[in-house]
Amino acid sequence: MTGLNTAAIYILQTLGSLYLLIVLLRFILQLVRADFYNPLSQFVVRATQPLVRPLRRLIPGLAGLDLASLILAIVVQLLLMALTLLLMGYGADILGLAGQLLIWSIIGVTSLFIKVFFFALIVSVILSWVAPGSYNPGAQLVNQLCEPVLAPFRKLIPNLGGLDISPIFAFIALNLIDMLVIGNLAAMTGMPRQLSPFM
Rank of each mutant, 00 (worst) to 15 (best):
M1I: 04
N5T: 10
N5K: 14
A8T: 15
I9E: 15
I11K: 00
L12H: 13
Q13I: 03
L15W: 14
S17N: 08
L18K: 04
Y19R: 11
L21N: 07
I22R: 00
I22W: 04
L24I: 06
L24D: 03
R26G: 05
L29A: 06
Q30F: 07
V32N: 01
R33I: 06
R33D: 09
A34Y: 04
D35S: 11
Y37R: 09
P39S: 10
L40D: 12
L40T: 04
F43A: 14
V44P: 01
R46T: 09
A47T: 05
T48H: 04
Q49C: 00
L51W: 13
V52K: 15
V52T: 15
R53N: 10
R53T: 12
R57P: 01
I59G: 05
I59R: 07
P60Q: 15
P60C: 10
P60H: 15
L62W: 13
L62Y: 13
G64T: 10
G64S: 14
G64Y: 10
D66K: 05
D66E: 15
L67R: 11
L70M: 04
I71Q: 11
I71P: 02
I71H: 09
L72M: 12
A73W: 00
I74L: 13
V75D: 10
V76A: 03
L79M: 08
A82P: 05
L83W: 12
L86K: 03
M88N: 11
M88W: 08
M88A: 15
G91V: 00
D93N: 11
Q100T: 09
Q100K: 14
L102F: 11
W104E: 10
I106Q: 02
I106Y: 02
I107T: 01
G108C: 05
V109L: 02
S111K: 03
F119N: 13
F119R: 14
I122F: 11
V123M: 14
V125W: 05
I126M: 15
I126D: 06
S128K: 06
A131P: 03
A131L: 14
A131Y: 12
P132I: 02
P132Q: 13
P132W: 08
S134H: 06
Y135K: 04
G138F: 15
Q140P: 00
N143I: 00
N143L: 01
N143Q: 11
Q144V: 10
V149C: 10
A151C: 02
P152V: 14
F153C: 06
R154A: 07
K155A: 12
P158Y: 01
G162T: 02
I165D: 05
I165V: 12
S166E: 07
I168A: 15
F169N: 07
F169E: 13
A170M: 04
A173V: 00
A173G: 01
N175T: 02
I177A: 05
I177R: 01
I177K: 00
D178Y: 00
D178P: 00
D178I: 01
M179T: 15
M179G: 01
I182W: 00
N184K: 03
N184F: 01
N184S: 03
A186E: 07
M188V: 07
M188G: 12
G190Q: 14
M191R: 10
M191W: 06
P192C: 11
P192V: 08
P192Q: 14
R193C: 01
S196M: 08
P197M: 07
F198R: 06
M199H: 03
